[in-house]
Write a protein that binds this DNA or RNA. Sequence first.
DNA 1: ATGCAAATAGGTATATGTACCCATATTTTT
DNA 2: AAAAATATGGGTACATATACCTATTTGCAT
Lengths: 215, 215
Amino acid sequence: MEKINILLVDDHRIMLDGIESMLQNSQYNIVGLCANGEEAWTWINANEDKVNIVITDISMPLMNGIELCKKIKATYHHINVLMLSMYNSAAAVDEVLQAEADGFILKNASKVEFINALHKIQNGGTYFSQEIIPFLYKQIIAERKKEMELGVLTQREKEILEMIALEFTSDEIASKLFISKKTVDNHRTNMLQKTHCKSTIGLVKFAIRNGIVSS
Amino acid sequence: MEKINILLVDDHRIMLDGIESMLQNSQYNIVGLCANGEEAWTWINANEDKVNIVITDISMPLMNGIELCKKIKATYHHINVLMLSMYNSAAAVDEVLQAEADGFILKNASKVEFINALHKIQNGGTYFSQEIIPFLYKQIIAERKKEMELGVLTQREKEILEMIALEFTSDEIASKLFISKKTVDNHRTNMLQKTHCKSTIGLVKFAIRNGIVSS
DNA sequence: ATGCAAATAGGTATATGTACCCATATTTTT
DNA sequence: AAAAATATGGGTACATATACCTATTTGCAT
């Protein structure tokens, strides 16, 4: 049976050792070890035909696994990527999906699950840990909620809301946008109604909650 | 040479494997493996004289490493604890110190550093990763900064700020606190001055930033 | 004991925001 | 083509917040 070549990317030595020992006496052949995305990206560019699957951690210095995955997927379509993460955070799941990884499993996965994921990926499939699925739903729901919440506002309203949250008064906003203060105030009123807020304070919290500004 | 008995606590199978392989052919003898603090605490209570050093991860389900360490230190003075963490977060460092662990190293530590830490701990000493030191300073500085920022406000001011951020008007706050609206407004003015904010909006962002309310 | 910060409260003036009413031009959707 | 949403602007009244000023009481610290 032909060996599948694997590049291992993780900044934690113990994790590299652990995975290496898991893959001993398997059809998988570790052809490289890198401690971060940048190192890995350089390695891949020099050895693009020597690697079939890249197994990478998400959080790493210099270049994280998400960025690495995006770069790989943009350039080398034949290389498959399995993402590893310590925690099943909703944000992580989302990023992994956006990076178009072929699989995503948690670091506490068993050897069986680990090998299973590699098998699926090697055959052009995908594998996502069972533990991640509920988070995926949560994430999607949260995203939709967020989009829905933000969706009630028009572009102009969001623009004005941002300036409100940056502590500009209606007069100042009017000047900056070359419109009447009255128009700005009308937008305020409409936003208050749309967001069911009592006052500007609620609008500002809405803005922070939805990432229009930071606190 | 007498073997040193070690209990390994980590919810990540790969991590357990990695450490186990590191300690092969050493003076250290792994006498138990646990997946979380609760399991470990039960194990220790049943085998208190069979273990010299507990190596534990920080973040684990049911009972984390910090809690486990505190319990151990409160009951079994002869057992030494080495904490492991994935990340050198400032918060983690602080907690480890409060839990009175004998050592704290990151999971990306080399085998040499790992063994070194065990040697020191086994001889009644302590070991903290070099990488953790700068974070300790950062932590202290960050904490002080936060405390300073919040520290400029009196208890009463924080109380009123919270209510402001919860969208209550001065009149409403006055009623709830059985004081004059004028007093509330004075507190507002004082807070604006102390926090260098332009308006209530700035105060609300200050409140969110400092955890007085959530967005 | 004297001073200082904190919490309390008042006055007055002004600035800013909000709630209603209204209208019109443009764009988007149906 | 008709309807709806969006962006624009006006008027009036009221609500709320902010900037100054002042003062008293309390408690804590030098």
